[in-house]
Design a protein around this nucleic acid. Structure first.
Lengths: 221, 221
DNA sequence: TATTATTGACACATTTTTATGATATTCTAA
DNA sequence: TTAGAATATCATAAAAATGTGTCAATAATA
């Protein structure tokens, strides 16, 4: 269902959470330190469970760093003692926080609630994918560090697709979102832009669903 | 998904139910007394969960009053002790009743069941069934984790069947819904598509009702 | 102003889907 | 049990949808 990064230094705890999430049908990735979290974090991840007390870099720092890049859903895990920490300060950055010890079932519900609240479409500013890096807010893209030419409309289209990964978007949805409702644009124009994206980005991850529309689907693991 | 009015005087109970329903994607409205229920009830509500023991006007009265007006789906919540009450009397008026204490998950199933019985389709995005997983929003399907080829129309047809599981759909209903009213398509085309679904998905759960149409019926639990 | 980039549209090639009809099979009612 | 009707199945021609390269118009930029 979702791909979840579990950041928790206690081995048993980490294991337990991961097991449960797998049972729920999610894919999981473990990290035991803040540093590891930042390494393993990527836009393939849909949601992060982030402990506050971590070795090297603490959870609060990790939260701030990731938030600069994008708005991925993050749930903080706090021990009761941590409550002294300025919870209010990261409150605005995190989507939710759960106080340990917590019931494992609660976790599942909170995750679902948050993803739903987010409407599943996850806003992204900087997107890394294989050799590709796209800065949606800066309207720039590079492949293996080399800047490439890409037009604004192309970037907007890519962003819309990526933010709705896995979901098929009809040409009308795309036109409404990227071009705006008032414009009367030809359906087929979308096709042209899709072709340009595929060519420029060497992407075969934009899937065509004939008669319906297009979707972005992650192919690399 | 649906708009549900929760009528229950116990605050904690009311809250719990509402939270759960929200997580399921429904919109909820709370009422704590019979009077409040009648005030908040409107034709925008899709379904009512109605406790029997209520202050001011009891649930049974509320039920009767609402039934005079319309035939909205209503599920009664009864405590074990209430069973002495003439359940049979409101049996015909209510769609279902659930005895407290009940598992919160059961509630969701009952709701879906009733809405389905009433002919209201229950939207589904991702559908897991035995080894089969179908992503209706992504127009993709897999068996035991392996992606399989499936055409858009096939997915649409499957979705229609699954969202109306247990209910027989005529070929005309299917044509209207999947192909669209304006198209003049041969009846028999539906048969072909059904055959393909059965073959591709190794499904023997699509039942033929001779002379009428088809239905999807769950065989596994 | 000259030059370049972006944009939307179109035409033609290509691919996939899809509807259909012929035939085999199953069901049902008498 | 059997005739008659309804459905299952499959191959395939035809239709529909998309991929792709180019172009003229417009916008942006130097």
């Amino acid at each position: 269902m979702f791909k979840i990064l579990v950041v928790e230094d206690d081995y048993i705890m980490n294991e337990t959470i991961c097991e449960y999430l797998k049972e729920c049908g999610h894919k999981v990735e473990s990290a035991f330190t803040g540093k590891e979290a930042l390494e393993k974090y990527s836009h393939k991840i849909d949601l992060i469970l982030l402990d506050i007390m971590l070795p090297e870099i603490n959870g609060l720092e990790v939260l701030k760093i990731i938030r600069k890049e994008c708005d991925i859903p993050i749930i903080m895990l706090t021990a009761l003692n941590d409550e002294n920490m300025q919870i209010s300060s990261f409150d605005q950055l995190a989507d939710d926080y759960i106080t340990k010890p917590f019931s494992i079932a609660i976790l599942g519900r909170r995750i679902n609630a948050i993803m739903r609240r987010r409407g599943i479409a996850v806003p992204i500013n900087v997107w890394r994918y294989d050799k590709l890096t796209v800065d949606f807010s800066g309207f720039s893209a590079e492949i293996s560090g080399k800047q490439i030419d890409i037009a604004p409309k192309e970037i907007l289209l890519l962003q819309y697709l990526v933010e709705n990964k896995g979901r098929v978007l009809t040409r009308n949805q795309i036109l409404d979102h990227v071009w705006g409702q008032e414009e009367a644009i030809n359906d087929r124009t979308v096709d042209s832009y899709i072709a340009r994206l595929r060519k420029k980005l060497v992407l075969d991850d934009i899937i065509t669903i004939k008669g319906i529309g297009y979707k972005f689907e992650e192919k690399i693991e």
